[in-house]
Amino acid sequence: MKALLIRDLKLAMRAGGGFGLGLAFFLIVTVLIPFSVGPQSALLATIAPGGLWLGALLACLLSLDRLLALDWEDGTLDLLATAPLPLESVVTIKALAHWLTTGLPLVLIAPALGVLLSLPAPGYFWLVISLLVGTPALSVIGTFGAALTVGLKRGGLLLSLLVLPLYVPTLIFGAEVARRGATGMEATTPLLLLAGITAGVTALLPFASAAVLRVNLR
């Protein structure tokens, strides 16, 4: 299992691995928001938590179609399915590697981008916490979507259409934590619900991902 994680991290860092694409996308989306809304810092501060969460979510989505498709194309997935490692742990490790290379960097860069949207000072802590708790769910749900569409030609668009509705609960509670935190309201309840979603999908979805992967490999 460790070997698979290390390999995935290595592949992401090397040429063509796509590490940093999500970050750059997040940066650009966040910069585009003030351009489209106009230079009104009060309005920007209001939409900052939601805007940042949406940007992080779309950046996460961007790298999903490579998650399993590359391994499927070169036959690695077939070979992993016949290896001693159960497919459930394969998809869990793949999701973890995706979070480490996409989700975690987004969490770390989010405060810097908050400045661009004049996020109120108390909001930074809650923004980082909500992303830290919420982005693992995005990776796990995304892995399920990638498993569903693996082997399909032009599966990327279908993947987005399947995964985006599943992201709704995470987005609602994640953005709510950041919004409440930014306006100085109590944010523990939505944070607990967000943590519940992450814990739930991490516990259950790998089984579903492995099951659809088995069907898709036939």
């Binding site: 460790k2 592949l11 090397r14 077939d78 290896a83």
Partner: peptide
């Protein structure tokens, strides 16, 4: 099992590719 595709990663070296499969098995 060895199918039509070799399951190799183009950016990993020969040694790294083999090491990966050795550790998996």
């Amino acid at each position: 099992y060895a199918g039509h595709a070799d399951g190799l990663k183009p950016t990993l070296t020969v040694e790294e590719n083999l090491h990966f499969w050795a550790e998996i098995f």
